[in-house]
Structure formats: C-alpha cells, structure tokens
C-alpha cells in the first residue's frame, strides 16, 4: 500500500466514523424516534406557551400545570389501536402512583392533533374511557389550529394520515417536569422506567 492510499484510507475512516457518530448520536440512536428521546434526556426542552381548551371547556396553558409532573401523549379520539394501548398504560401508571400516594403531584394529559373532529365533547368521552377524574386527567385541543405545526415541532412529533382515515404518529409517553419542560420520552410498555423518572422529577427541587 502506498503512502497516498494510506492517507486516503485513514481519511475515509475518520470521516466515516464522524458521520456515523454524528448520525447516530454516538451509536445510541438509529431511528429518529430514539434520537428525539436521547436529545430531551440530555437537553430538557422548553415548550411554547400555546393556548388549549380541555374537555370541560376550560382554557389551559402548560403553565397551569406548574409544580406538577405531567404525563402527556398525542392522540386522536377515533384511533383504533395504539391510543388505546397508551391509555391503558396511563391508567396503570396512575394506579401505581396512587398506591404510593403521589396522585396530587401528577397531571395526565392527552393532546389531540385531529382538530377537525375532536371536540371537547369527544375528548370528554375519550377521557371517560379510563377515569372519571376530569381534574387529574385532561384531554386538550389547541384553540388556534394554526399553532398545530408549532406544537408538533416542539415535541418532535410527526403525524401522517393513513389510508384508513386515521393517522400514524409517534406512540410514546412524554414527561414534563414541574417547570413545564419536556424531560423524558418513553415507550408506553416501559412502565418501570416511566414511574422511576416521575418519582425522580417529583422529588426534584424547583429552583
């Protein structure tokens, strides 16, 4: 092997390593969903102050939840499958936290991205599937449809309509800390991790 080829091979290896390191967040994230999760873990994300209304027609802003740890997911009420799984997962997390006496410290939130169909009434029925406690569990919709893009990009969520009239979207449980910053994103199956992070956030002191 000649000197020039040695140099070029070394260069190729260095550049490739850099591309892969950068492109996989240090060999940790091979999908953009995983990248999103690692990113918020390392850099808690501030969210825009958008205006919502909930299932009981109250005006809601994320700042209303200040002091509580928020569990949040994105849904549409006619979702046939994944949103159910998310819902039941919330229910079971809620039960576990209630057993530990922590129900005062948390807020559960479903945000719809289907603004055309999901009225507060439908959101109310949706929440009713899992609980009758409409204070602790909110179904939210944006008041201004023009802000949807902002909302989704804040969270890094992508929604694409599918051929059955529904949507494909990131199925994950998001955790906001007591300051309203996005600090965690988890698979809905990993209840242990979720509960662990919630406990950690509850015990964290607010600066």
């Amino acid at each position: 092997m000649n000197r020039y080829s040695l140099i070029s091979t070394t260069l190729v290896l260095i550049i490739s390593a850099a591309v892969w390191w950068q492109g996989t967040s240090g060999f940790k994230a091979f999908t953009s969903e995983a990248a999103r999760r690692i990113d918020v873990l390392e850099y808690p994300r501030k969210l825009s102050g958008l205006d919502f209304e909930n299932q009981t027609f109250e005006n809601i802003n994320f700042s209303d939840y200040k002091g509580k740890v928020v569990l949040l997911d994105f849904i549409y009420t006619s979702c046939p499958d994944i949103c159910y799984a998310l819902g039941f997962s919330f229910k079971s997390i809620k039960a576990e936290l209630e057993e530990a006496g922590l129900q005062e410290q948390i807020q559960i939130v479903n945000i719809t991205f289907n603004l055309e169909q999901d009225t507060p009434e439908r959101l109310s029925a949706y929440v009713q599937r899992y609980t009758s406690d409409h204070d602790m569990w909110h179904g939210l919709r944006l008041k201004d449809p023009g802000q949807l893009k902002q909302l989704l990009s804040d969270f890094g969520v992508v929604v694409i309509p599918n051929e059955h009239g529904g949507f494909d979207h990131n199925a994950a449980i998001h955790i906001l800390d007591k300051e309203g910053r996005l600090v965690g994103i988890h698979d809905y199956q990993s209840q242990q991790q979720i509960v662990a992070q919630i406990r950690e956030q509850i015990s964290a002191t607010v600066l």
Partner: peptide, 23 residues
C-alpha cells in the same frame, strides 16, 4: 490514492451503510 480499492470500498460501505439507517 485508492490502492487495492481499500479506501474506496470502505467509503462505499460506510456511507452506503449510513443511508440504510431509518434515521
């Protein structure tokens, strides 16, 4: 600069492999 095709094939594998990532 591409003796025995080494540099080129490595580049092809690594960069091509990168585009196989869903991300």
């Amino acid at each position: 600069i591409n003796d025995k095709g080494l540099a080129g094939i490595l580049m092809c594998i690594f960069i091509g492999g990168y585009w196989m990532l869903p991300r």
